[in-house]
Simulated scan of single mutants.
Amino acid sequence: MAFVDYYKILGITKSASEADIKKAYRKMARKYHPDVNPNDKTAEKNFKDINEANEVLSNPKNRKKYDKYGEHWQNGEAYEQEKQRQKAHQKRSQSSQGGYTQEDFSDIFGDMFGGGTSSGGRTNAKFRGQDYNSEIQLQLKDVYKTQKQVITVNGKNIRITIPAGVENGQIIKIKGHGGTGVNGGPNGDLYIQFSIVNNTKFKRDKDNLYIDVDLDLYTALLGGQLMVDTFDGKVKLTIKPETENGAQVKLKGKGFPKYRKDSEFGDLYITFQLKIPTKLNEKEIALIKELQKLR
């Protein structure tokens, strides 16, 4: 396997921080994304390389292996184990034969990854493929309902189902969609992290939603009807007389979908913010003064 410099692909140095890697990946991915460069084979290859580099370098554990073992990073631990096993074999051979033979010094990587069966009768070991990491950025409204989406990972299109109610920062695993196993070993897994952007006026806390609603002084004092927004439409509320500033009401089942629980929702909490009238005319001022005398 030829060595691929993932740092060079992303345009960063080996001392780059996790934030630097993330920033560089997003910049390069936007530049070479297939949607931006239709029918451009070079951009398509660059996009594939960028994703591959990010999948390795954005994972601290994989990055450490890559820095140490280079193109053999996926099987670094297995390499160390094989090296220790061969050292033990060499010591046993030395004690029984009085020295080492050329066969004892067979190329470790050749034995493990493509050298076939060695003279000692060892067969190629099977190794699990690498795990891939990807990030999907969505709007809050996008995860209010379950949806399907096609994502590109390492040059392959994968159709996934995104359950309603997924949270910001949540990671889900898609089994078997990582790197191909070595010598018939199992494939790795795909880990997808969700970045949920909330551009709505609602605040979300797990499956509950919160919103502030303006309430005019007269409705607060006398009571009445008020139309308020929920995440999926408007509802009419009955306001009790003498409702205080900061009073809160709960609309059961009007919150956000519960993750992987079909037809179950959290609650919506509405907090009333009293709006004091301004730019009063003379008659209004006189009436308020009269009320003040009564109180």
Rank of each mutant, 00 (worst) to 15 (best):
K64A: 13
K64T: 15
K64C: 05
K65D: 01
K65P: 01
Y66T: 06
Y66H: 12
Y66A: 11
Y66D: 07
D67Y: 04
D67V: 05
D67R: 08
K68P: 01
K68E: 14
K68I: 13
K68G: 04
Y69Q: 04
Y69G: 00
G70Y: 08
G70C: 08
E71K: 07
E71C: 07
H72M: 11
H72L: 15
H72I: 12
W73I: 03
W73G: 02
W73N: 03
W73D: 01
Q74P: 01
N75L: 07
N75Y: 13
N75R: 13
N75F: 10
N75M: 10
G76R: 03
G76L: 10
G76W: 01
E77V: 08
A78Y: 13
A78G: 06
Q81G: 06
Q81M: 07
Q81V: 13
E82K: 13
E82L: 08
E82N: 12
E82T: 14
E82Y: 10
Q84F: 10
R85N: 08
R85K: 15
Q86S: 03
Q86A: 05
Q86R: 15
Q86W: 13
K87L: 05
K87A: 03
K87P: 01
A88I: 00
A88F: 02
A88V: 01
H89E: 01
H89S: 07
Q90V: 04
Q90K: 08
K91A: 11
K91H: 05
R92S: 09
R92H: 09
R92Y: 03
R92M: 07
S93A: 11
S93R: 06
Q94C: 02
Q94M: 11
Q94A: 08
S95K: 06
S95Q: 14
S95M: 09
S96D: 09
S96W: 07
G98P: 05
G98N: 02
G98K: 00
G99P: 02
G99T: 06
Y100A: 02
Y100C: 03
T101V: 01
Q102H: 10
E103T: 11
E103S: 09
E103R: 07
E103F: 02
E103C: 01
D104G: 03
F105A: 03
F105C: 04
F105S: 06
S106F: 11
D107G: 13
D107M: 06
D107Y: 05
I108S: 04
I108P: 04
I108M: 08
F109A: 02
G110L: 13
G110C: 12
G110R: 12
D111Q: 15
D111I: 12
D111F: 00
M112F: 14
M112K: 07
M112L: 14
M112V: 10
F113S: 04
F113Q: 04
F113L: 14
G114A: 00
G115Q: 10
G115W: 11
G115Y: 06
G116V: 12
G116P: 12
G116A: 04
G116N: 04
G116S: 09
T117L: 11
T117Q: 14
S118Q: 12
S118N: 15
S119C: 05
G120D: 14
G121V: 07
G121Y: 09
R122P: 00
T123G: 09
N124P: 14
N124K: 05
A125D: 11
A125K: 06
K126T: 15
K126Y: 11
F127L: 13
F127Y: 14
R128K: 15
G129W: 08
Q130K: 00
Q130M: 02
D131V: 01
D131W: 00
D131L: 03
Y132W: 14
Y132G: 01
N133I: 05
N133L: 09
